[in-house]
Nucleic acid binder design. Structure first.
Lengths: 132, 132
DNA sequence: TACACAATGTTATATTATAACAATTAACAC
DNA sequence: GTGTTAATTGTTATAATATAACATTGTGTA
């Protein structure tokens, strides 16, 4: 089987909701909002999240413990993620910059360690918040 | 007052311990290990951690919810952190690469957002683990 | 059909982190 | 020194995030 094309019921419910809200959302907030769909326990949400992260449909914003839908036609990219985060309004955008990703993919540390994945989070003020 | 040169009692206790273990360590593990020094509650640890992160003496490894002493003669660098993380043995090293930090400091996203901070975590296998 | 494996349902619990409030100590102008 | 302010501490309780363990059901396929 390939990366998995078909999502299970719970995975689809969780993904649908994350894609709908279109901003980072926390696991328990997802839970509250999908209870009407029959998902009752945290573990059901976390299992779906794990799988969705694994297959690149969503990403975890580590500094916020939140999850967001992938904007970059998913796949591969789940191993190479970059986000900008506004420290005022908490808006998060996925950065899609081929020069940046190429630079980071090829980065070699001094110990010669070979990386297969990275996550980069930038913090600052978004345009709206910086003119306030 | 400058960045704060003198640490308070609890801050010093926590920092001493983190520097001693010399690897990423979790808040409750710190708590268990500094109880003999008189620190009794999680909040005392978290307050010290917050301050130590703020002044750049330690960093938080977001993907691991762990804290590690800064190796780069601290200061400034707390706003520009990069780590390599071995997914097998969980060894974490702080990356100190002036080209990388220069590149990231000057990175401008397409929306023109100005960043004042970033955190980058690379994942892979360290030398030891890759030959196993 | 039967096997293997993925996904589900469920209860309980572990782990990480903060709220709220009172008391104490440090920094410093006067 | 006294008074004022802010930082730090101590303490209890609780919120928020995440996983363990185990029984059951569904799905693909040989």
């Amino acid at each position: 089987m390939l990366k998995q094309e078909i999502l299970s019921k719970n995975q689809q419910i969780v993904l649908d909701y994350i894609e709908k809200v279109n901003e980072p959302i926390k696991a328990y907030s997802i839970l509250h909002n999908v209870q009407k769909k029959g998902i009752k326990a945290p573990l059901q949400v976390y299992r779906a999240l794990d799988k969705l992260v694994e297959i690149g449909k969503i990403h975890k914003i580590e500094s916020r413990n939140a999850f967001v839908a992938c904007k970059n036609s998913n796949c591969q990219i789940s191993k190479a993620t970059a986000f900008s985060i506004c420290e005022s309004c908490e808006e998060v955008s996925e950065i899609s910059d081929s020069k940046l990703s190429k630079y980071l993919k090829n980065f070699q540390d001094k110990a010669g360690m070979k990386f297969n994945k990275y996550n980069l989070e930038f913090f600052g003020l978004c345009k709206k918040c910086s003119i306030k």
